[in-house]
Design a protein around this nucleic acid. Structure first.
Ligand SMILES: [Mn+2]
Ligand SMILES: [Mn+2]
Ligand SMILES: [Zn+2]
Ligand SMILES: [Zn+2]
Lengths: 125, 125
DNA sequence: TAATTAACGCGACAAAGTCGCATTATAGTA
DNA sequence: TACTATAATGCGACTTTGTCGCGTTAATTA
C-alpha cells in the first residue's frame, strides 16, 4: 500500500514537471526515451491520479492527458477548470477559469471534464 | 455528395428521437436490433454530425455519444452546453446551461466538449 | 543481510473507431 | 418504366488506446 520510489516514476514525474502542460501517455513515453514499458507508464499515471499528484483529462480526441495538480489532496480534487487542446500543435493546457455548472436537483457531480479544442496563438494563421 | 435515404439511416434517426438523450454507438446498434453493420452505423453518425443533425460528445469514459441537435446548421454549431453522464445508469444527457469560457488572446475555439459525471437523481442513494 | 511486497516487463487481450473494397440500392434521368 | 451514376452498405482487416495476469525484479524496512 505504501508507494515506492522507482526510476520510472521519477522519470515520468520530471517529464511532467519539465513540460508544464498536460501530456498524453505516448508523449510521456517518448519524453522518457522509451526506457520503460508501456503498461508501467500507464500504471504510474493512474497511481499519480489516485494520489492527487496529477489529474486526468479526457480530450475530444478520446485520449487521456495528464497534468500536474496544484493543491490537490488524495481526498479532494478540485478541477473545475477547462482545458485547451490545439489542433495544430496538439498541446493540451489547463485554462485558469474556474467554472460552475448548475445540475438538476438530486444530481451529484463526481468528476468535471471540460475541453475546448481549436488553435492556439502560435498555430493560428 | 447528396445524401440518400436508407433504412439504416432512418432507423438510427428514430432511435435517437425516441431516446431523447444522447446515445453511444453500441446502444444505438442494440436499439435498432443489430440489423445493420457496425461500420455503417458509425458512418451514419459521422454524417449526422457533419450535417448538423447530431452533435458528438466525448465523455470521460473515452466513448463518443450522439445527441440530436436543436437548431444547428451544417455551418454553425452552437453547443456550449454541458452534459451529464450517470455512473449508475450510464445515461448521457444534455444540460441546459450555456457556458462561456474565456480563452487566452489569439486563441480560436473550434469545438466545445463539457461533461460532468456523477449520479443522477434516480441512481442516487 | 534477509524478508516483504510494490512495482516492473512482457504478453495477451478488449474496446472503440476507421478504412478499403466489392456489392447493393437510391435518386435522378432518358 | 428502364438505365445510369454514385451514395451507402456489409464485410473484413486494421489501428489506437488502455487494461490485466503473471512471473520476476528491486525498493523498503527490520
Ligand atoms: Mn487541468
Ligand atoms: Mn448536447
Ligand atoms: Zn498550437
Ligand atoms: Zn443514473
Amino acid at each position: 500500500m505504501k508507494r515506492r520510489s522507482t526510476p520510472s516514476k521519477t522519470a515520468v514525474l520530471s517529464a511532467l514537471e519539465q513540460a508544464g502542460t498536460a501530456l498524453s501517455h505516448d508523449k510521456i513515453l517518448t519524453k522518457v526515451g522509451d526506457r520503460f514499458d508501456r503498461a508501467t507508464v500507464y500504471r504510474i499515471l493512474n497511481r499519480f491520479c489516485d494520489d492527487g499528484i496529477t489529474h486526468r483529462i479526457v480530450a475530444d480526441d478520446g485520449k487521456q492527458y495528464f497534468a500536474l495538480c496544484e493543491g490537490c489532496s488524495h481526498e479532494a480534487h478540485a478541477h473545475n477548470h477547462f482545458h485547451f487542446r490545439c489542433l495544430g500543435c496538439d498541446a493540451v493546457e489547463c485554462l485558469s477559469s474556474e467554472v460552475t455548472v448548475g445540475l438538476p436537483a438530486g444530481y451529484r457531480a463526481e468528476n468535471f471534464n471540460g475541453v475546448i479544442s481549436g488553435y492556439c496563438a502560435g498555430c493560428e494563421a
